[in-house]
Design a protein around this nucleic acid. Structure first.
Length: 691
DNA sequence: CTAGGGTTAG
């Protein structure tokens, strides 16, 4: 503040605050009344126009009010008045001024005053350090702290609290430990604010053991201390411990912050833990915390994540005022559990939407492979709102991949490039996936090398998957070796590699991967076991496939289909049929893939009648609509086993015209079995189709 | 007197 400096130098009045005339006293009273009534601007104008100084305490009061109102113009006026009438104002008032400038976000004013002060005390350093910490410049705060330390000014509790906040922001674990040592050396360790700050900084640095140790050293943790420790466990993905600590807090007589309720509920959503969530619901109701939108929104989300849509909806429905977040929560609850129609109905009713609401709805369509609806929704979104973020773009790319629409995917790529989203790793990986799924392996490769700077393990997996999908499984192994130098493999990596082994009949590689996973304790989920079954059966090692299959406790449809088709691959039709029988007994509903396996088994075993019955039972008993490949397999069945009458009846009863491969197969079969009536017809059809 | 925590939804 150049003007203020000038004032300080030019003015040489020697007025003292203690000798106040009556007019000043009344002025003070008027200003105080104005402040009390919230007229800060008027109060400051009055002060500014007054040629008299006021008491130190009134200046302090004015600064404080400017602080809480972020009134920068008024703060400058107050400082100006102060330095005009006091050539050497008390340091503490200038410290207040620095703090006020900091709170108003005017760091230049704060720094200017700090630099110009004729004398500084520890409070001045604290004020400027706190200003930088709170306005989001932790590096500057830390370097100022070093200056302070070097210039021999002692740090006090306030300094430590502030500087720990900066450590937490930049995750400087080493400095935090040093500060911890100093705090104990100076005997500040019983300060609850410093204790909580240390819990905070250790937790943010991911050292929960130290955070927990520090927490236990706090004699009487307050609501903030509890909130910190619960939150840190939640952030590190240990929802269980977060919930445990929350309930421990409830057994003390501390009244929890409503934020802590929200954190505990989010922890329940993350596990998910319905029982505990319901208990928290009860407690929150008892102490009227559902009044907080934050708590009720978290509660709605907890119920949806625990699969209790009805309960979630009941709370939502009874909500006094439904805010954007609770609307979005309920929509996402329906959308992500497959009830996209209900979700859409609610979405259309929303009084307002933001990018998260749009993304939630779109995610629902994507998760349940409703690509057409998703695409319509994308266009609706782009026509309605400008609000598009990296999540939206990732979802749009998923739609392109789902529809195998490379052109659309390329358009999205251009958009992403133009709008600077390309260096986002989520978007980048979605792009890789899109190129792979749209059949453009080269595009995927080029993009993979372009994203060298910011790719992660997922990028490698995506590229591996693209290679495996393009029957370039031989190249997957060298790629995997390259990958291992950079990033550790995950179960997704192995899933892809096993599929690659299956496609290239690389039994030895497959066995090595299986062994590697067992030795290194990788999670053997149902997808991995399915990949193992598939790999072993495609490598003609059906015994191993069956062994892995039998180890799975709860089998899903995909796993059943894999083993049934595996038997077919190994020309073990009878075993396939036997497995189908067991599957039925276990109450598993077959789908079109299962029936394709069954029909193939019948072809192989020459079970023409059984195949016919199965084909009939598809639509009659199991309500599985026969697809093109089922009709084709039936044609193969009759052709191969010379059942020409049945073949003719079957083809004539088909709900669509036979395809070229079907006709070709029929012509061959009719020639072989001298059945010219159908053969001639098929040949004629063929000529019309292929001129 | 100044200092600590916390923003739920994709």
């Amino acid at each position: 503040m150049g003007v203020n400096v000038l004032n300080r130098l030019v003015r040489n009045t020697t007025s003292k605050p203690q000798a106040q005339p009556t007019s000043t006293k009344s002025l003070t009273n008027v200003i105080l009344t104005l402040l009390k009534e919230g007229h800060l601007q008027k109060a400051v104008s009055l002060l500014f126009a007054s040629p008299e100084p006021v008491s130190y305490s009134l200046y302090a009061h004015l600064f404080q009010t400017c602080s809480s109102n972020s009134a920068i113009v008024e703060a400058r006026k107050v400082e100006s008045h102060l330095v005009t009438f006091f050539p050497t104002p008390p340091i503490f008032l200038l410290n207040r001024a620095i703090e006020t400038y900091g709170k108003c976000g005017c760091l230049e004013d704060a720094r200017g005053l700090f630099e110009e002060m004729p004398q500084r005390d520890g409070g001045s350093w604290n004020a400027i350090i706190t200003a930088y910490t709170q306005r989001g410049f932790p590096d500057k705060a830390l370097s100022l702290f070093v200056c302070m330390y070097r210039s021999g000014v002692y740090a006090n509790e306030i300094t430590f609290a502030s500087i720990l906040g900066s450590c937490a922001a930049v995750l400087d674990l080493d400095l935090s430990r040093q500060l911890h040592g100093l705090i104990e050396k100076y005997g500040f360790q019983r300060n609850i604010i410093l204790g909580s700050s240390l819990v905070d900084v250790y937790g943010k640095c991911g050292i929960l053991s130290d955070a927990r140790k520090m927490f236990h050293e706090i004699q009487c943790p307050n609501a903030i201390s509890w909130n910190v420790i619960v939150r840190r466990y939640l952030e590190m993905g240990d929802g269980k411990e977060a919930i445990f600590l929350f309930f421990q807090m409830l057994s003390t007589d501390i009244r929890p912050l409503h934020f802590t309720f929200s954190n505990a509920l989010v922890a329940c959503s993350s596990i998910p833990a319905l029982e505990e969530g319901m208990q928290i619901h009860v407690v929150a109701t008892k102490i009227s915390y559902l009044e907080y939108q934050l708590v009720s929104s978290s509660l709605i989300d907890m119920y949806t994540k625990c699969g209790k849509l009805d309960d979630a909806f009941r709370i939502f429905d009874q909500l006094g005022s439904k805010d954007l977040v609770s609307w979005t929560s309920i929509v996402s609850g329906y959308a992500l559990s497959g009830k996209t129609w209900e979700a859409r109905k609610l979405f259309d009713e929303m009084p307002e939407r933001n990018v998260v609401s749009w993304n939630a709805m779109l995610s629902g369509y994507n998760r349940f492979f409703q690509w057409e609806e998703a695409l319509d929704f994308v266009f609706l979104m782009l026509n309605t709102t400008e609000d598009v973020d990296h999540v939206t773009l990732g979802l749009i790319l998923n739609v392109c991949a789902g529809l195998s629409d490379l052109e659309l995917g390329k358009q999205a790529h251009v958009y992403i490039y133009r709008h600077g989203f390309y260096s986002n790793v989520i978007v980048g990986n979605a792009l890789l996936d899109m190129y792979g799924k749209c059949g453009n392996l080269n595009g995927a490769r080029i993009w993979f090398y372009q994203m060298t700077e910011w790719r992660d393990g997922v990028s490698w997996n995506a590229l591996l998957t693209s290679h495996a999908r393009h029957r370039l499984s031989e190249q997957a192994m060298p790629l995997f070796s390259e990958m291992q130098l950079v990033t550790p493999p995950t179960k997704y990596t192995f899933g892809t590699l096993l599929a690659a082994c299956a496609n290239t009949f690389a039994l030895e590689h497959g066995k090595q991967i299986h062994g590697y996973m067992i030795r290194h304790g990788y999670e053997m989920d149902i997808v991995i076991r399915g990949a193992l079954v598939d790999m072993y059966s495609k490598c003609h090692c059906l015994d191993y496939a069956l062994m892995v299959f039998k180890e799975v406790a709860s089998r899903d449809l995909i796993l059943w289909n894999t083993i049934i088709l595996g038997c077919c691959h190994n020309r073990m039709g009878r075993e396939a049929l036997e497995l189908f029988r067991i599957m039925n007994n276990e109450g598993m509903k077959p789908d079109h893939v299962t029936f394709q396996g069954i029909l193939l088994a019948c072809v192989d075993e020459g079970l023409v009648d059984l195949a016919g019955q199965c084909f009939e039972s598809m639509s009659n008993e199991y309500f599985v609509l026969p697809r093109l490949e089922h009709y084709q397999t039936m044609i193969e069945l009759y052709s191969r086993h010379g059942h020409m009458n049945e073949l003719e009846n079957f083809v004539k009863r088909m709900p669509f015209e036979p395809t070229v491969p079907m006709l070709t197969r029929m012509v061959d079969a009719c020639r072989e079995h001298k059945y010219s009536r159908l053969g001639d017809w098929a040949a004629k059809q063929l000529i019309e189709l292929v001129p």
